[in-house]
Nucleic acid binder design. Sequence first.
DNA 1: CTATTTCGCAACCGATCGGTTGACGATGAC
DNA 2: GTCATCGTCAACCGATCGGTTGCGAAATAG
Lengths: 119, 119
Amino acid sequence: MADELSRVFAALADPTRRDLLARLSVADATVGQLAAPYHVTVQAVSKHVRVLQDAGLVSRDGHSHRRPVHLEAEVFDLMTRWIERYRLQAEERYRRLDAVLAAMDDDAENTNPPRQESA
Amino acid sequence: MADELSRVFAALADPTRRDLLARLSVADATVGQLAAPYHVTVQAVSKHVRVLQDAGLVSRDGHSHRRPVHLEAEVFDLMTRWIERYRLQAEERYRRLDAVLAAMDDDAENTNPPRQESA
DNA sequence: CTATTTCGCAACCGATCGGTTGACGATGAC
DNA sequence: GTCATCGTCAACCGATCGGTTGCGAAATAG
């Protein structure tokens, strides 16, 4: 299957699944309890829970049939770290742009420019 | 169409699109430049760019045919805020759980824990 | 014990997705 | 002007998705 980040983002792309997470952030719940507010079948909600579970967003350490679904908050750190990479890289880029503009400003001498390329 | 958050998450669920964002965080690029490293057609990459654009993750303020694609970093704030909601709510929940456990410890008349959540 | 409830599995359906090929319009070079 | 290049639009294809129905297994209620 796809990598974890893809699974996480795909799981969050559905409003119903995001609502499930919102409710699970308040308290654990069984599939039946989770399905109650919606007008879809229990099986559909069961599938949603399965998707969230495959993405590592929820867990069900129970053994019984009515085991509750539990939110796994650690996975959000993965996303946060991914997002932060872009924020930092974007800032870095703007810094580089400023440096280039400054260099162009006093570009009288053709010396070796800071050709630092990030691998 | 779906709400913005769903569009953003769905756009990020594809590894190729995430790679496009990674490269765009370094520098703007045209569709042709973006398509070069991949072994897919330029039409496929054009579609990917379209998806990113509909999600608000990139923009193309140009008018010409070879207008460059530009990363829009602000949308990441939307995600960060959404994720932070869950982090805070999860912490809040653990605080509540501690309070419940303390109350149960104090009030030892009923051995069965309050499995009924406050409806 | 039997009966009921809860939930997962499998099959199916329409819609969407990621990709292709082909044709087309608009830009830019000559 | 002509012509090649770049990018998008359109149609199509296989795979996946969100949803349903139906069935069955396991835990609970009586």
